[in-house]
């Protein structure tokens, strides 16, 4: 109960003012963003701000159902960060490396989808270099295969990597562009699915103006 109150306070007093006033969003195709689960949002990843921006796209009543999928080795690295990530942000931890003997690494994600949650997945698996897109990992395709009825929404984000890139301590306000895509369905082939998803996100990038950043 207390953690839930803290979670809502954190959203209302920190995340939403940060995202809506200090950052500021330009959302293209807002109407494409799903209003209920189960669904998977697959976005490019540049900054810790990405998850907060994506959570802010949903109304507060969906707060408990919008779950960022995040690297267990990073977000569970000590007790305090683990408590914060699991209870205040509401992440679903996944291992970045695993052995088959350890069981199903995506069990948490599957469970969340089955109970109607909206998963936020960054297929790049890491923030990487700011405002560039790395190779996609296969996890999202595995999930799509397991849950063929769950729509996967490609989504392009631009600006978070300028505002708070990896390895930088100071936050600098920049507008963030969000471009939502049409939902994709499982087509039968993991590699093809990943390629298609990447292509969709690259196409969405064309909708926003991205001034030089060099």
């Amino acid at each position: 109960m207390l953690t839930r109150v803290l979670k809502i306070l954190f959203q209302c007093l920190f995340v939403r003012p940060l995202v809506l006033v200090l950052i500021g969003l330009n959302v293209r195709f807002q109407e494409r963003i799903p209003s209920e689960g189960p669904a998977i949002i697959a976005a490019n990843h540049n900054s810790h701000l990405d998850s907060l921006v994506l959570q802010s796209l949903f109304p507060l009543r969906l707060l408990d159902r919008v779950r960022p999928v995040a690297a267990a080795d990073y977000f569970l690295r000590n007790k305090l960060i683990a408590w914060f990530s699991l209870n205040i942000i509401g992440i679903i931890p996944v291992p970045r490396t695993f052995r088959h003997s350890e069981g199903d690494p995506l069990a948490g994600c599957s469970e969340a989808l089955e109970s109607g949650n909206i998963l936020i997945i960054f297929p790049e698996g890491s923030r990487g270099e700011a405002e560039t897109m790395d190779e996609f990992k296969a996890g999202v395709a595995h999930l799509a295969q397991r849950h063929p009825d769950v729509p996967v929404y490609p989504l392009f984000l631009h600006g978070c990597g300028k505002a708070l890139p990896r390895g930088e301590g100071i936050f600098v306000p920049f507008f963030v562009d969000v471009v939502a895509g049409e939902p994709m369905r499982w087509g039968g082939d993991r590699n093809e699915f990943i390629q298609q998803l990447r292509l969709e996100i690259e196409n969405l990038a064309e909708y926003c103006q991205r001034p030089a950043w060099d």
């Binding site: 300028k162 920049f174 507008f175 103006q209 001034p211 030089a212 060099d214």
Partner: peptide, 26 residues
């Protein structure tokens, strides 16, 4: 002023190294 400046700095080309300069400007 803040909202206008943020729009301005978001729409012009900027240099990666100038993040701290923009911070000072804010």
């Amino acid at each position: 002023s803040f909202l206008a400046l943020k729009e301005f700095y978001s729409m012009i080309p900027t240099r990666r190294v100038d993040r701290s300069i923009l911070f000072w400007a804010y």
